[in-house]
Design a protein around this nucleic acid. Structure first.
Length: 766
DNA sequence: TATATAGTGTTTTTT
DNA sequence: ACACTATATA
C-alpha cells in the first residue's frame, strides 16, 4: 500500500500519529477514537512507506483478543511480511523470551506457570508449614501484597527493609519462602513472568542487546494500564533506539488494583521530554448524547489530562434510567426488553451487552435469560481452565512435563482415589524436604521412606509407575494422545459416568472440550510442545475466546468490557455501595478509589454506540442479606436534561406509597414535588441523598406497574400438562412459591426438566 | 482413610 | 448465599 492509501481514510490527528515514527510518541486516544486503526496503519506505514523490516516491529497489547484482532487487521492491509510483525501480550512475549534463556536465571525451559489457584494452594501449604494462623492474616491478602511488591519490582529483601512493622516482617518471610518454593518447583507466577524478564535483561546485557536490536519499533497499547515492572520492561527494550510509541487514555485506567501505575501515562512527557504528543479526540463510536453523558461523569475527576471528545455522529436518544424494587425485577426488565426487541427483529442478540460491576450479579441475569430463551454468554467468572476436572488433568500434564512441580504432583497423587491420605503425603513431603529432592522424586523412592507401610508403598508406586509410563510415551506423542492416555489410565471419565448426575455429565463434557482444545492447539501451533500447550492454557483469558460472529447477548463485568463496543448497552446495578463499590467508599483514600470507579463508569458508558440504559435496584441481596441502596452518584452526575427517566416517574414521601392512578390519585402532591424539584434546577434524583429525611425519588418500573400484585396463582396444578412457547408440552412436576412469582418445575419430553416462573414463562394449561 | 455435618467467613474488578 | 474448613463418625 502506498502512503496516499494509508493516510486517505484518517483524520489529520490520526495521520500525525501514524507518521510520527521516530523517537518517543504519546498518543492520547479517547474512547472510540480509532486507536487500533491508528496502530494498524502505523505498522503499515513503517513497512510499506519507510521500508522497515516487519520482523523488527513489536506491538504489545493486554489481551490475546486485542493481539489477534490487530494481527489480522495488519494482515489485511500490509502487502507482505505481515506474519513477521510481532504482536503479543506482555505475558506471552515474556514467556517466549524466558523459555529461551531460562537457564541463565536458574530455571529450565519447562518451567510451569502458576495461576491464582496454584498460588493459593502454595500459600496455604506455607501457612501450615510455618504455623501461620490464617485467622491472623489471610492467604489471599498475603498473596496480594506479594503481587503488588512484584509489580513494583520489590524483592523479599527490599520488602523486609520497607516494612519494618511486625506484619511486614512476617509477610516478608512468607514472600521469601513463597519465592523459594516457586523456584524449587521450576515455576513462575504471573507477576514473575514480567519480573524475571526484567531481571534477565538487567543481569545479562547481551540478552537485552539481542532484543533491542530485534525490536527497533515498539508500540504499547492500553498504556494507562501498565505497571512499574511492565514500564521497566518496555524502557529497557526501547532503551537503545528509543522508538517507543505508547497509546492510552488516562480516563480509562481501571487496573490500579493490579498494579497499573497511572503515572506511567501522566508522566510520560516528564520521562521523555522530547516526546511528541498526539491527541485523538474525535469519536467514531457513540451518539452525542452518550458521549455527553460520559463527559459529564468523567469531568468530576481531578488530575486528568483535560480533553473532550466530540463526534459527528447523530444526537441519538437520551440515556435511559430505570429504577426497580430489587435486582430480580431489574433483570426481568432488561431481559424482557431484549427479548421483545429481538423478536421484533429490531436488533440481533449480539447487539446487546449487559454490564455490571461484580461477577456475582450475573446470576440473576442468567436465570432470566434462560427463562426468556435468549442465547447469551457470560464472560469471566469461573474460567473453563479452573474447573476441577480440567485442573486435575492439566496437573497430570504438568507433572509429566515438569517433574519437579510439587504442587501438581501433590494434587493428583490421590486422584483418582488411590487410598493415599494426608499422612502418607506428609511423610513423602518430609522425606523430599530432608533429602532436598522434589516431591515426585521422593515418591519414586517410596520404599525407602520411613513410616510408610507396605500397602502405602504399593499405592504410591502404582502412581509413580503410571506417570513413568506416560512420560516415556509422551516423547513424540501428540498432546491430545497423552491426554487421552491420562483419561483412560486414571479412569476419570468412567468414574464420573457412574455418578449419573447432570453435574458429572457436565464434567465429562468439559474433559471432551479440553481434549479438543489440545487438538486445536496441535493444529495451529507452529511447533507444538507440551509446555507450549500448558502455557497457552495458562495465559488465556475468557474474553480472548469471544467470537463476534456468534449471536448471543453478552454479560460481563465493566472491566471485561474495556476495548469492546455494542449498539445497545445496559449498565446494571447503578447503586451506591455496589458501583461505586463499598470498598472504594470506605477506603482510607476514598477520593482516589472513587475516581478509579468513575473511570470504570466512563469505560462502561463509552461502550455504547446507539443506546445506553442504566438501571438500579432499591434493594439488593448482598452476601446473604438484603441491603437498601441509593442511586449511584455517577448517575446523579449526569444532568437531568440528558436523561430519560421513564414516563412513570413519581416521587413519594418516605415510608408511604403514592397512589398515582385512578380516583384519589395524589396528583397534586406529585406535581408539587416534581415542580419544586425542577424549578430548583436540580434533577429529582439529585436529592436521593436525603434518603430517610424528607423524601426520595422513585422511578417505577414501566415493566411492572406499581401496586400490581407480584404474582397470580397459576391455573394448573401438579400433574397437569402445560404448553410453553419454546419447549412445547410438558407435565408439571412441582409448584413452589418463589417469592415474586410461582416457581414451576416442568418435565418437557423433548427438553428435559426445566424450572421457570409461571407468569413470566406464560405457561398455558392444555 | 473417607465421608457427612456443622460452623465459619467472604467478595470488587483480572493478565 | 455460598464455599470452604474443621470436626465427628463409620
Amino acid at each position: 500500500m502506498e502512503e496516499r492509501d494509508i493516510m486517505e481514510k484518517l483524520n489529520s490527528e490520526q495521520q500525525k500519529a501514524v507518521a510520527a515514527t521516530e523517537g518517543p510518541v504519546l498518543i492520547l486516544a479517547g474512547a472510540g477514537s480509532g486507536k487500533t486503526r491508528v496502530l494498524v496503519h502505523r505498522i503499515a506505514y513503517l513497512i510499506d512507506v519507510l521500508g522497515v523490516s516487519p520482523g523488527s516491529i513489536l506491538a504489545i497489547t493486554f489481551t490475546n483478543k486485542a493481539a489477534d484482532e490487530m494481527r489480522s487487521r495488519v494482515d489485511s492491509i500490509v502487502g507482505f511480511g505481515s506474519k513477521e510483525v510481532w504482536v503479543s501480550t506482555f505475558h506471552s512475549l515474556c514467556v517466549r523470551i524466558l523459555r529461551r534463556y531460562a537457564d541463565l536465571i536458574g530455571y529450565t525451559r519447562y518451567f510451569s506457570i502458576y495461576d491464582t489457584d496454584d498460588q493459593l494452594t502454595l500459600m496455604k501449604n506455607l501457612f501450615k508449614q510455618r504455623g501461620t494462623d490464617p485467622k491472623r492474616m489471610r492467604e489471599k491478602a498475603v498473596l496480594a501484597r506479594i503481587s503488588s511488591a512484584k509489580d513494583e519490582l520489590i524483592g523479599p529483601a527490599k520488602y523486609r527493609e520497607l516494612n519494618r512493622d511486625q506484619f511486614g516482617q512476617e509477610i516478608a518471610g512468607l514472600y521469601e519462602a513463597y519465592n523459594t518454593r516457586l523456584k524449587e518447583s521450576n515455576a513462575m507466577d504471573f507477576d514473575d513472568l514480567i519480573l524475571k524478564t526484567v531481571e534477565l535483561f538487567e543481569q545479562h546485557p547481551e540478552v537485552l542487546d539481542v532484543y533491542q536490536e530485534r525490536f527497533r519499533y515498539l508500540m504499547v497499547d492500553e498504556y494507562q494500564d501498565t505497571n512499574t515492572a511492565q514500564f521497566r520492561f518496555v524502557s529497557l527494550l526501547a532503551g537503545k533506539y528509543r522508538n517507543l510509541c505508547v497509546v492510552g487514555d488516562d480516563d480509562q485506567s481501571i487496573y490500579k488494583f493490579r498494579g497499573a501505575n497511572i503515572r506511567n501515562i501522566l508522566g510520560f512527557e516528564t520521562i521523555f521530554p522530547d516526546a511528541e504528543v498526539v491527541r485523538l479526540e474525535q469519536n467514531y463510536r457513540s451518539t452525542q448524547n452518550i458521549l455527553n453523558a460520559a463527559y459529564e461523569v468523567i469531568r468530576h475527576n481531578h488530575g486528568r489530562k483535560s480533553k473532550k471528545l466530540w463526534t459527528e455522529n447523530p444526537v441519538g436518544t437520551k440515556v435511559r434510567l430505570r429504577r426497580f424494587a430489587n435486582g430480580f425485577e431489574e433483570a426481568e426488565f432488561i431481559c424482557g426488553e431484549i427479548m421483545r426487541e429481538v423478536r421484533a427483529h429490531t436488533h440481533a442478540c449480539k447487539d446487546y451487552a449487559i454490564l455490571y460491576r461484580t461477577n456475582a450479579q450475573s446470576r440473576l441475569f442468567e436465570e432470566k435469560m434462560l427463562m426468556a430463551n435468549l442465547p447469551y454468554r457470560i464472560v469471566g467468572g469461573i474460567n473453563f481452565y479452573s474447573r476441577k476436572e480440567v485442573k486435575d488433568l492439566l496437573a497430570y500434564l504438568k507433572t509429566i512435563d515438569n517433574a519437579v512441580d510439587d504442587l501438581q504432583a501433590m494434587r493428583i497423587i490421590n486422584i483418582p482415589k488411590r487410598g493415599i491420605g494426608a499422612a502418607t503425603i506428609g511423610r513423602i513431603a518430609n522425606y523430599a524436604e530432608s533429602g532436598g529432592i522434589s516431591f515426585f522424586e521422593a515418591a519414586c523412592e517410596a520404599d525407602r521412606i520411613p513410616g510408610l507401610g507396605s500397602a502405602a508403598v504399593r499405592k504410591v508406586t502404582g502412581f509413580t509407575d503410571f506417570i513413568g509410563v506416560l512420560r516415556a510415551r509422551a516423547e513424540g506423542q501428540k498432546i491430545s494422545e497423552i491426554l487421552k492416555s491420562v483419561v483412560e489410565g486414571t479412569g476419570y471419565v468412567e468414574e464420573l459416568r457412574k455418578e449419573e448426575t447432570e453435574e458429572a455429565e457436565n464434567r465429562i463434557g468439559n474433559i471432551d472440550e479440553l481434549i479438543s482444545k489440545a487438538v486445536q492447539y496441535e493444529e495451529h501451533a507452529s511447533e507444538p510442545t507440551l509446555s507450549g500447550f500448558l502455557e497457552e492454557v495458562a495465559l488465556i483469558a475468557d474474553i480472548d475466546s469471544l467470537d463476534d460472529t456468534d449471536d448471543r447477548v453478552l454479560l460481563m463485568t465493566l472491566h471485561s468490557a474495556k476495548g469492546l463496543e455494542f449498539p445497545v448497552v445496559y449498565m446494571a446495578g447503578m447503586e451506591e455501595g455496589l458501583f461505586p463499590s463499598g470498598m472504594s467508599i470506605n477506603a482510607f483514600n476514598p477520593e482516589e478509589e472513587i475516581e478509579e470507579e468513575r473511570r470504570l463508569c466512563y469505560v462502561g458508558i463509552t461502550r455504547a454506540k446507539e443506546s445506553l440504559t442504566m438501571t438500579s435496584a432499591r434493594e439488593r441481596m448482598l452476601r446473604g442479606e438484603i441491603t437498601e441502596s441509593r442511586l449511584s452518584r455517577f448517575v446523579r452526575e449526569i444532568p437531568r436534561e440528558l436523561v430519560d427517566v421513564g414516563d412513570e416517574e413519581v416521587l413519594r414521601p418516605a415510608g408511604r406509597t403514592l397512589n398515582l392512578t385512578g380516583r384519589g390519585a395524589d396528583g397534586a402532591m406529585r406535581n408539587a414535588i416534581l415542580g419544586k424539584a425542577e424549578s430548583a434546577g436540580r434533577p429529582p434524583y439529585d436529592r436521593d441523598g436525603d434518603r430517610g429525611t424528607i423524601r426520595e425519588s422513585l422511578y417505577v418500573s414501566p415493566y411492572k406497574k406499581a401496586g400490581t400484585p407480584g404474582k397470580t396463582e397459576p391455573d394448573f396444578g401438579v400433574g397437569d400438562t402445560v404448553r410453553h412457547v419454546k419447549f412445547g408440552d410438558g407435565v408439571v412436576k412441582e409448584i413452589k412459591d418463589g417469592g415474586k412469582d410461582y416457581l414451576v418445575t416442568v418435565d418437557f419430553p423433548a427438553w428435559g426438566i426445566k424450572k421457570m416462573y409461571a407468569s413470566f414463562a406464560k405457561l398455558k394449561r392444555v
